[in-house]
Nucleic acid binder design. Sequence first.
DNA 1: GTATGAACATCATGTTCATGA
DNA 2: TCATGAACATGATGTTCATAC
Lengths: 123, 123
Amino acid sequence: MSHTRKSSGFLIKQRLFIKGYLITYIETSRPYGIQMLDELKQHFKPLGYTPNHAEIYRALHELLDEGIVRSGQKKLTEDSYQEITIYYIRDAEKAHALKQHIADEVRRSHKVLLRAIEDFDLH
Amino acid sequence: MSHTRKSSGFLIKQRLFIKGYLITYIETSRPYGIQMLDELKQHFKPLGYTPNHAEIYRALHELLDEGIVRSGQKKLTEDSYQEITIYYIRDAEKAHALKQHIADEVRRSHKVLLRAIEDFDLH
DNA sequence: GTATGAACATCATGTTCATGA
DNA sequence: TCATGAACATGATGTTCATAC
Protein backbone atom coordinates (compact mmCIF):
# COMPACT_ATOMS: atom_id res chain seq x y z
CA MET A 1 0.00 0.00 0.00
CA SER A 2 2.86 2.38 -0.40
CA HIS A 3 1.21 5.10 -2.37
CA THR A 4 4.04 7.45 -2.92
CA ARG A 5 2.49 9.83 -5.33
CA LYS A 6 4.45 10.02 -8.50
CA SER A 7 5.51 13.50 -9.54
CA SER A 8 4.86 14.53 -13.11
CA GLY A 9 8.40 15.87 -13.19
CA PHE A 10 7.51 19.41 -14.07
CA LEU A 11 9.86 21.68 -12.09
CA ILE A 12 11.89 21.32 -8.92
CA LYS A 13 9.97 21.95 -5.72
CA GLN A 14 10.73 24.96 -3.60
CA ARG A 15 11.53 22.85 -0.54
CA LEU A 16 14.25 20.93 -2.32
CA PHE A 17 15.61 24.04 -3.96
CA ILE A 18 15.94 25.76 -0.60
CA LYS A 19 17.73 22.79 0.91
CA GLY A 20 20.54 23.24 -1.56
CA TYR A 21 21.14 26.77 -0.38
CA LEU A 22 20.83 25.88 3.28
CA ILE A 23 23.50 23.20 2.98
CA THR A 24 25.80 25.64 1.25
CA TYR A 25 25.22 28.29 3.90
CA ILE A 26 25.80 25.78 6.67
CA GLU A 27 28.99 24.55 5.04
CA THR A 28 30.49 28.00 4.86
CA SER A 29 29.39 29.59 8.13
CA ARG A 30 27.38 28.97 11.27
CA PRO A 31 24.13 30.58 10.43
CA TYR A 32 20.75 30.35 12.06
CA GLY A 33 17.35 30.14 10.45
CA ILE A 34 16.26 33.73 10.09
CA GLN A 35 19.73 34.72 8.95
CA MET A 36 19.57 32.23 6.10
CA LEU A 37 16.07 33.36 5.26
CA ASP A 38 17.22 36.98 5.02
CA GLU A 39 20.14 35.96 2.88
CA LEU A 40 17.89 34.06 0.50
CA LYS A 41 15.41 36.91 0.33
CA GLN A 42 18.15 39.37 -0.49
CA HIS A 43 19.56 37.04 -3.09
CA PHE A 44 16.33 36.43 -4.97
CA LYS A 45 14.36 39.57 -4.35
CA PRO A 46 15.47 41.08 -7.68
CA LEU A 47 13.99 38.04 -9.38
CA GLY A 48 10.67 38.37 -7.62
CA TYR A 49 11.10 35.41 -5.32
CA THR A 50 10.66 35.91 -1.58
CA PRO A 51 10.59 32.73 0.48
CA ASN A 52 8.90 32.75 3.88
CA HIS A 53 10.15 31.60 7.25
CA ALA A 54 7.97 28.52 7.55
CA GLU A 55 9.43 27.06 4.43
CA ILE A 56 12.99 27.56 5.66
CA TYR A 57 12.22 25.88 8.97
CA ARG A 58 10.51 22.97 7.28
CA ALA A 59 13.56 22.51 5.07
CA LEU A 60 15.92 22.65 8.06
CA HIS A 61 13.86 20.10 9.95
CA GLU A 62 13.91 17.76 7.02
CA LEU A 63 17.69 18.05 6.81
CA LEU A 64 17.80 17.17 10.51
CA ASP A 65 15.51 14.19 10.04
CA GLU A 66 17.63 12.98 7.15
CA GLY A 67 20.69 13.08 9.36
CA ILE A 68 22.46 15.53 7.09
CA VAL A 69 22.82 18.32 9.63
CA ARG A 70 22.78 18.64 13.39
CA SER A 71 21.84 21.62 15.47
CA GLY A 72 22.95 23.38 18.61
CA GLN A 73 21.78 26.25 20.75
CA LYS A 74 23.63 29.48 21.23
CA LYS A 75 23.00 32.95 22.57
CA LEU A 76 22.44 35.51 19.87
CA THR A 77 24.88 37.91 21.56
CA GLU A 78 26.96 37.66 24.72
CA ASP A 79 24.66 39.80 26.80
CA SER A 80 21.41 38.56 25.31
CA TYR A 81 18.97 35.98 26.49
CA GLN A 82 17.80 35.32 22.97
CA GLU A 83 18.60 31.76 21.97
CA ILE A 84 19.23 30.83 18.38
CA THR A 85 19.57 27.44 16.75
CA ILE A 86 22.71 27.04 14.72
CA TYR A 87 23.41 24.26 12.29
CA TYR A 88 26.39 22.11 11.43
CA ILE A 89 26.96 19.52 8.76
CA ARG A 90 26.63 16.09 10.30
CA ASP A 91 27.13 13.83 7.30
CA ALA A 92 29.22 15.49 4.62
CA GLU A 93 28.76 12.59 2.25
CA LYS A 94 24.99 12.69 2.42
CA ALA A 95 25.12 16.46 2.12
CA HIS A 96 27.17 16.21 -1.02
CA ALA A 97 24.92 13.57 -2.51
CA LEU A 98 21.83 15.66 -1.88
CA LYS A 99 23.42 18.76 -3.36
CA GLN A 100 24.31 16.72 -6.40
CA HIS A 101 20.74 15.56 -6.74
CA ILE A 102 19.44 19.10 -6.33
CA ALA A 103 21.86 20.41 -8.93
CA ASP A 104 20.62 17.76 -11.35
CA GLU A 105 17.02 18.68 -10.71
CA VAL A 106 17.78 22.36 -11.15
CA ARG A 107 19.49 21.70 -14.46
CA ARG A 108 16.64 19.53 -15.66
CA SER A 109 14.08 22.15 -14.70
CA HIS A 110 16.18 24.75 -16.41
CA LYS A 111 16.03 22.73 -19.61
CA VAL A 112 12.26 22.51 -19.43
CA LEU A 113 12.00 26.29 -19.22
CA LEU A 114 14.62 26.81 -21.89
CA ARG A 115 12.63 24.60 -24.22
CA ALA A 116 9.54 26.69 -23.51
CA ILE A 117 11.38 29.93 -24.19
CA GLU A 118 12.47 28.58 -27.54
CA ASP A 119 8.97 27.38 -28.32
CA PHE A 120 7.31 30.65 -27.40
CA ASP A 121 9.79 32.72 -29.36
CA LEU A 122 8.71 30.90 -32.51
CA HIS A 123 5.27 32.47 -32.30
CA MET B 1 -12.52 39.17 2.56
CA SER B 2 -11.01 38.03 -0.65
CA HIS B 3 -7.81 36.55 0.61
CA THR B 4 -6.10 35.60 -2.51
CA ARG B 5 -3.05 33.93 -1.15
CA LYS B 6 0.10 35.64 -2.23
CA SER B 7 2.58 33.49 -4.10
CA SER B 8 6.18 33.58 -2.99
CA GLY B 9 7.12 33.93 -6.64
CA PHE B 10 9.27 30.84 -6.81
CA LEU B 11 8.63 29.22 -10.20
CA ILE B 12 5.80 29.27 -12.70
CA LYS B 13 2.96 26.87 -11.95
CA GLN B 14 2.33 23.91 -14.17
CA ARG B 15 -1.23 24.99 -14.94
CA LEU B 16 -0.15 28.34 -16.32
CA PHE B 17 2.73 26.80 -18.21
CA ILE B 18 0.42 24.34 -19.92
CA LYS B 19 -2.00 27.08 -20.90
CA GLY B 20 0.69 28.68 -22.99
CA TYR B 21 1.11 25.52 -25.03
CA LEU B 22 -2.61 24.92 -25.34
CA ILE B 23 -3.18 28.38 -26.78
CA THR B 24 -0.40 27.83 -29.26
CA TYR B 25 -1.78 24.45 -30.30
CA ILE B 26 -5.27 25.89 -30.65
CA GLU B 27 -3.98 28.77 -32.73
CA THR B 28 -2.28 26.52 -35.21
CA SER B 29 -4.70 23.62 -35.56
CA ARG B 30 -8.01 22.29 -34.30
CA PRO B 31 -6.89 19.87 -31.68
CA TYR B 32 -8.79 18.13 -28.94
CA GLY B 33 -7.72 17.47 -25.38
CA ILE B 34 -6.04 14.11 -25.52
CA GLN B 35 -4.27 15.05 -28.71
CA MET B 36 -2.69 18.06 -27.03
CA LEU B 37 -1.80 15.96 -24.03
CA ASP B 38 -0.02 13.43 -26.23
CA GLU B 39 1.80 16.22 -28.02
CA LEU B 40 2.97 17.72 -24.74
CA LYS B 41 4.04 14.34 -23.42
CA GLN B 42 6.05 13.64 -26.54
CA HIS B 43 7.61 17.06 -26.41
CA PHE B 44 8.77 16.92 -22.81
CA LYS B 45 9.30 13.24 -22.23
CA PRO B 46 13.04 13.53 -22.93
CA LEU B 47 13.20 16.10 -20.13
CA GLY B 48 11.42 13.87 -17.66
CA TYR B 49 8.17 15.77 -17.62
CA THR B 50 4.95 13.89 -18.30
CA PRO B 51 1.77 15.89 -17.66
CA ASN B 52 -1.46 14.03 -16.99
CA HIS B 53 -4.87 14.38 -18.55
CA ALA B 54 -6.61 16.00 -15.58
CA GLU B 55 -4.21 18.89 -15.66
CA ILE B 56 -4.82 19.49 -19.36
CA TYR B 57 -8.58 19.48 -18.91
CA ARG B 58 -8.37 21.83 -15.96
CA ALA B 59 -6.27 24.21 -18.03
CA LEU B 60 -8.71 24.03 -20.94
CA HIS B 61 -11.67 24.71 -18.66
CA GLU B 62 -9.95 27.72 -17.20
CA LEU B 63 -9.30 29.08 -20.69
CA LEU B 64 -13.00 28.61 -21.38
CA ASP B 65 -14.00 30.38 -18.17
CA GLU B 66 -11.67 33.24 -18.99
CA GLY B 67 -13.37 33.67 -22.34
CA ILE B 68 -10.14 33.07 -24.23
CA VAL B 69 -11.27 29.99 -26.12
CA ARG B 70 -14.54 28.42 -27.11
CA SER B 71 -15.31 24.80 -27.79
CA GLY B 72 -17.35 22.70 -30.16
CA GLN B 73 -18.23 19.06 -30.58
CA LYS B 74 -17.20 16.90 -33.46
CA LYS B 75 -17.05 13.25 -34.40
CA LEU B 76 -13.61 11.77 -34.11
CA THR B 77 -13.97 10.15 -37.53
CA GLU B 78 -16.76 10.13 -40.09
CA ASP B 79 -17.98 6.68 -39.23
CA SER B 80 -17.42 6.90 -35.49
CA TYR B 81 -19.74 7.69 -32.66
CA GLN B 82 -16.90 8.96 -30.54
CA GLU B 83 -17.36 12.65 -29.84
CA ILE B 84 -14.45 14.95 -29.25
CA THR B 85 -14.31 18.51 -28.00
CA ILE B 86 -12.35 20.82 -30.23
CA TYR B 87 -11.21 24.29 -29.33
CA TYR B 88 -11.04 27.63 -31.10
CA ILE B 89 -9.61 30.96 -30.07
CA ARG B 90 -12.44 33.21 -28.99
CA ASP B 91 -10.59 36.35 -27.95
CA ALA B 92 -7.29 36.71 -29.75
CA GLU B 93 -6.36 39.78 -27.77
CA LYS B 94 -6.81 38.09 -24.42
CA ALA B 95 -5.00 35.05 -25.75
CA HIS B 96 -2.06 37.15 -26.77
CA ALA B 97 -1.99 38.98 -23.44
CA LEU B 98 -2.01 35.74 -21.51
CA LYS B 99 0.75 34.26 -23.64
CA GLN B 100 2.77 37.39 -23.01
CA HIS B 101 2.29 37.02 -19.29
CA ILE B 102 3.22 33.36 -19.43
CA ALA B 103 6.34 34.11 -21.45
CA ASP B 104 7.36 36.67 -18.82
CA GLU B 105 6.81 34.20 -16.02
CA VAL B 106 8.78 31.54 -17.86
CA ARG B 107 11.66 33.91 -18.37
CA ARG B 108 11.62 35.00 -14.75
CA SER B 109 11.57 31.41 -13.56
CA HIS B 110 14.37 30.63 -15.93
CA LYS B 111 16.45 33.38 -14.33
CA VAL B 112 15.85 31.97 -10.87
CA LEU B 113 17.17 28.59 -11.96
CA LEU B 114 20.06 30.11 -13.87
CA ARG B 115 21.09 31.96 -10.74
CA ALA B 116 21.00 28.70 -8.82
CA ILE B 117 23.11 26.93 -11.42
CA GLU B 118 25.71 29.66 -11.14
CA ASP B 119 25.61 29.50 -7.36
CA PHE B 120 25.96 25.75 -7.18
CA ASP B 121 28.80 25.66 -9.66
CA LEU B 122 30.82 27.88 -7.35
CA HIS B 123 30.97 25.13 -4.75
C1' DG C 1 -11.96 1.12 -25.93
C1' DT C 2 -11.47 6.45 -26.24
C1' DA C 3 -12.42 11.09 -24.77
C1' DT C 4 -14.12 13.94 -21.37
C1' DG C 5 -14.99 15.30 -16.99
C1' DA C 6 -15.72 15.19 -12.03
C1' DA C 7 -14.51 13.53 -7.51
C1' DC C 8 -11.32 12.41 -4.44
C1' DA C 9 -6.85 12.34 -2.05
C1' DT C 10 -2.64 14.26 -0.89
C1' DC C 11 1.12 17.16 -1.30
C1' DA C 12 3.24 21.77 -1.30
C1' DT C 13 3.24 25.89 0.70
C1' DG C 14 1.38 30.46 2.47
C1' DT C 15 -0.63 32.61 6.89
C1' DT C 16 -1.50 32.76 11.57
C1' DC C 17 -0.88 31.59 16.28
C1' DA C 18 1.99 30.08 20.37
C1' DT C 19 6.02 29.93 23.20
C1' DG C 20 10.37 30.93 25.38
C1' DA C 21 14.06 33.83 26.62
C1' DT D 1 10.82 41.90 20.63
C1' DC D 2 13.12 38.09 18.03
C1' DA D 3 13.73 33.36 16.81
C1' DT D 4 11.62 29.12 16.47
C1' DG D 5 8.14 26.17 15.71
C1' DA D 6 3.50 24.29 15.25
C1' DA D 7 -1.13 24.68 13.58
C1' DC D 8 -4.08 25.89 10.31
C1' DA D 9 -5.90 26.94 5.66
C1' DT D 10 -5.83 26.56 0.92
C1' DG D 11 -3.78 26.01 -3.59
C1' DA D 12 -1.78 22.83 -6.84
C1' DT D 13 -1.82 18.62 -8.73
C1' DG D 14 -1.81 13.36 -9.04
C1' DT D 15 -5.15 9.23 -9.01
C1' DT D 16 -9.43 7.19 -9.42
C1' DC D 17 -14.11 6.86 -10.76
C1' DA D 18 -18.13 7.88 -13.88
C1' DT D 19 -20.29 8.63 -18.22
C1' DA D 20 -21.14 8.78 -23.13
C1' DC D 21 -20.12 7.31 -27.34
